[in-house]
């Protein structure tokens, strides 16, 4: 009997153990090594002294803050725009009509497409000599490539955001669609009979219901853009770039003494990501409970 209760007690921990084990060993193990080196413990270059110097170096470097701001700005803008567009399009797509399955499939099309392929596609469209510029030339809107607006390799990172929008709108949209389908039309019917207009039905009935899904999906999107490496590398400017690119450049510097600084940068990046997550969760709770 006691054996059985013990088994019962251990069952759940045993079930989560493999997943937790793999993540702790690989992810947190990797993080720990990074932390060690960021503190200057780096036997490969005969450095054993524990110091906060590298954190000071990073935090006194204006380039770090410019990259941080660029990373944050790109992530925030992409997330907000994706969320708004996703809600709007999901509302259009949720009705069942002739061909709705086809349109839903087309809407989801970009979900499985790798970000690199999306980046290649966006570049072909939006450079100053890209397909859009050629269309504008054919229509007589521009006379030469340089008349076309600058959308790529720009400081604002427009092509980067377009790539993320194209990828993430359907991702959030599919979650919203799933929630909408789970709700069904009853609530809105009731609101309608109570005299609510279309905007009120959306604002006071639908939005509160879909908001939890949108908020937590948008955390994932935010985190994804925040960690982006290859997209800003391909479509962005060399300066200012994103933090992951900056950290990796430092990491790959042939001067091994740059390593601890790269590690310090990534530890700071980790702390920022976790703080943002906690803040976001608080905010989400607050918004939803209202």
């Amino acid at each position: 009997m006691r054996w059985l209760t013990l088994m019962e007690k251990l069952r759940s921990p045993l079930m989560v153990l493999p997943a937790v084990g793999v993540i702790v060993i690989l992810f947190f193990g990797g993080l720990l090594v990074g932390l060690q080196q960021s503190l200057g413990y780096f036997p490969a270059i005969d450095s054993y002294e524990v110091t906060l110097r590298y954190y000071q170096d990073v935090l006194s470097d204006p380039i770090f803050f410019e990259s941080l701001w660029q990373t944050f700005r790109l992530a925030l803008l992409s997330t907000v725009m994706s969320s708004v567009l996703a809600i709007a399009l999901a509302l259009v797509l949720r009705d069942t009509f002739k061909g709705s399955r086809f349109f839903t499939f087309m809407f989801q099309l970009s979900i499985p497409i790798p970000h690199l392929v999306a980046a290649a596609g966006i570049v072909l469209l939006v450079t100053q000599s890209g397909l859009l510029a050629r269309g504008a030339y054919a229509l007589g809107l521009i006379a030469a490539p340089r008349d076309f607006p600058v959308l790529v390799f720009d400081r604002a990172g427009i092509a980067i955001q377009l790539t993320y929008l194209w990828k993430e709108v359907p991702f959030i949209g599919v979650v919203v669609l799933a929630v909408l389908q789970g709700i069904g039309p009853q609530y809105e019917e009731i609101a309608r009979t109570l005299g609510a207009n279309a905007w009120q039905r959306f604002r006071y009935v639908l939005l509160p219901l879909i908001m939890p899904g949108v908020l937590s999906t948008s955390i994932i999107v935010f985190a994804y853009v925040f960690s982006s490496y290859e997209i800003p590398l391909l479509l962005g400017v060399r300066f200012p770039t994103t933090l992951p690119v900056l950290a990796f450049q430092n990491y790959q510097d042939p001067d091994l003494a740059q390593r601890p600084q790269a590690m310090a940068m990534s530890i700071i990046l980790t702390v920022i990501a976790i703080v943002l997550l906690i803040a976001y969760k608080r905010l989400a709770k607050y918004t939803v409970s209202r």
Binding site: S129, A144, P145, F239
Partner: peptide, 21 residues
């Protein structure tokens, strides 16, 4: 190009010359 706001990667510059940018 771009009033020096940014400088292209070498490969991008090749594409810029190709397309008369």
């Amino acid at each position: 190009w771009r009033a020096g706001e940014t400088y292209p990667e070498a490969s991008v510059l090749t594409d810029l010359l190709a397309n008369q940018e």
